[in-house]
Structures are given as C-alpha cells and as structure tokens.
C-alpha cells in the first residue's frame, strides 16, 4: 500500500525532471561514422567501381533485399545492375561485413522516407558514390591476382612476374 503511494509520488516528482527526448528535426543527433544507415557503393582509389558482383552481400542479406547480375569489361567484373529494396532493408550491415572489396558500405544517413514504396528501390546509379567511403586506400584488384587495364598479370601485391614456360631452368 505504501509502496503504491511511494510509486505515485516518485512518478509525480518526475514531472520536475529534465526530459530525455531529443527534438529530432530541429535538434540533430550525433551519428558515428560507423552508424548503419543508407547503403552506398564506393569506388576504388583509381575511380573504378569497387563492386565485383561476387554476390556475397546478396547471399548474406537476411531479408534478401539485394540483387545483382555480374557482367565483365576488360577482365574486370562489374554488376550489370545492382538493386537494393530499402523498403525491405533492416540495416543489419551483414552486406558490409560480407563484402570482400569494401564496396558496399553503410553510411550515417537514415533520412530516406518516401511517400511511394517504389521510390525506395535503389538501382546502381542511386547507390554509387564517387569516393572511397570509409576505406581510403584499398583496391581489391591490386590484391587479387586478376589483371585489369593498367595492371598486368603478376603485378599485384605479393606476386611474381608470370612464369616463362619456355625457360629450361628448373
């Protein structure tokens, strides 16, 4: 009985406490750089698309809201289309964790409300940014052993020049 009254008193006294609510549109909260918001596709330091259409983000996605198709130009893999249905996305960041090339990244932007659901379907043009995002120096193609224009076979990091099969040396 007294507990109940005490509860009521304490509740009443809360009327004189400071309010915890952030008045959002006027008062912008601080979002850390690793905040999981709108997804983007980044580019290599040399300006090429980082995404190599390996499909790992799509398979990691628990709500299956990423879809893409591989295509190839000059030996470099690209997504022909890359589509994210943000009306399904749960911003879990698994795609970013799965990405072997740091192409897909989540950004501190969540203000993407729309009046029509189709507007939440983002294609590659909507996702691709012109910078490297959170990982400035990394270029997958200089680690992987595939040649791309401007980098011959055997010129990646930790690679020897190609074997000369006609050499008789052991």
């Amino acid at each position: 009985m007294l507990d109940t009254l005490r509860t009521l008193l304490l509740t009443f006294l809360h009327g004189f406490h400071r309010r915890a609510t952030v008045q959002y549109p006027e008062q912008q909260p601080y979002l850390p750089p690793r905040y999981r918001g709108r997804i983007i596709l980044s580019r290599d330091p040399d300006g090429g698309e980082r995404c190599v259409a390996c499909n790992l983000c799509a398979v990691a996605c628990p709500v299956d809201c990423i879809s893409l198709q591989k295509t190839e130009r000059d030996g470099r893999w690209y997504p022909d289309y890359f589509r994210i249905n943000f009306s399904r996305c749960i911003f879990c960041g698994f795609c970013e964790e799965a990405c072997p090339t740091y192409a897909i990244q989540l950004t501190p932007d969540f203000e993407m409300g729309e009046y029509a659901r189709p507007n939440l379907v983002y294609e590659k043009e909507d996702l691709l940014i012109s910078g490297t995002g959170k990982y400035p120096g990394y270029s997958f193609h200089h680690v992987a052993g595939v040649p791309i224009p401007g980098k011959d076979r055997g010129a990646s990091e930790h690679e020897r020049a190609p074997i000369d099969l006609h050499s008789l040396l052991p």
Binding site: T11, F12, H14, G15, H17, R18, R19, A20, T21, Q23
Partner: peptide, 8 residues
C-alpha cells in the same frame, strides 16, 4: 504522461 515519464 509525457511529463511524468520525462518525455514531451
């Protein structure tokens, strides 16, 4: 209710 729960 907001007042007593530190909200608006």
């Amino acid at each position: 209710l907001g007042l007593w729960q530190d909200r608006y």
